[in-house]
């Protein structure tokens, strides 16, 4: 990973920039509104943006999917190979779930299924290693590790 520099833009948002391995300088502007801009800098005048890509929230998600999809599946395959017999699953918590407003402790998921909840993705933030007091909300994406059987049971509990 190259060094990513973060610069606050008062009243606008935040800019992250880095130099690619081929030597091009690239930045992502995150507006407070959620809009993003991808900026490529001029080689002659390193302060000036030559290419600016305006992305809405949806565009950002699409682009992130396109760029990130291969990496996620590669990483996932690697994890599964490393930990023989273990699997990872992403489970979306629907509003009708009986755990939509419960804490992790209340659900006793590990006792019941053997699977561990390792992260919760809420909107755009990831809560890594959530504690037993963590309270779910409808729409949370629960990331769990376990045997494929345990994960199926967990899926049943959370969604069913």
């Amino acid at each position: 990973m190259p060094d990513v520099t973060e610069t606050p833009l008062p009243g606008v948002g935040v800019r992250h920039e880095f130099t690619t391995s081929s030597g091009e300088r690239l930045a992502v502007l995150s507006y407070r509104s959620g809009r993003r801009e991808v900026v490529v800098y001029d080689r002659d005048d390193p302060d000036a943006a030559v290419t600016v890509l305006h992305l809405s929230r949806d565009d950002t998600r699409t682009l992130a999917d396109l760029l990130g999809a291969t990496q996620v599946s590669e990483a996932l395959t690697a994890v599964q190979q490393q930990l023989e017999g273990l699997a990872i699953d992403w489970i979306m918590l629907p509003a009708r779930s009986r755990f939509a407003d419960a804490t992790i402790a209340e659900g006793e998921f590990r006792t019941r299924t053997g699977a561990s909840i390792v992260a919760v993705v809420r909107d755009e933030t990831t809560i890594a290693a959530p504690g037993p007091d963590h309270r779910f909300q409808a729409g949370d994406v629960v990331v769990a590790v376990g045997t494929s059987q345990g994960l199926a049971q967990l899926n049943e509990l959370l969604v069913g």
Binding site: T7, L9, E37, A48
Partner: peptide, 28 residues
């Protein structure tokens, strides 16, 4: 005028430029 400055930067697509934080900080 911070109003004009931010409008100029937006219209000319310069919010991403590296000198822009200096402009915004001066306004602050």
């Amino acid at each position: 005028s911070s109003g004009v400055a931010s409008k100029v930067l937006t219209d000319l697509d310069r919010l991403g430029n590296r000198e822009t934080p200096t402009v915004l900080n001066l306004l602050v």
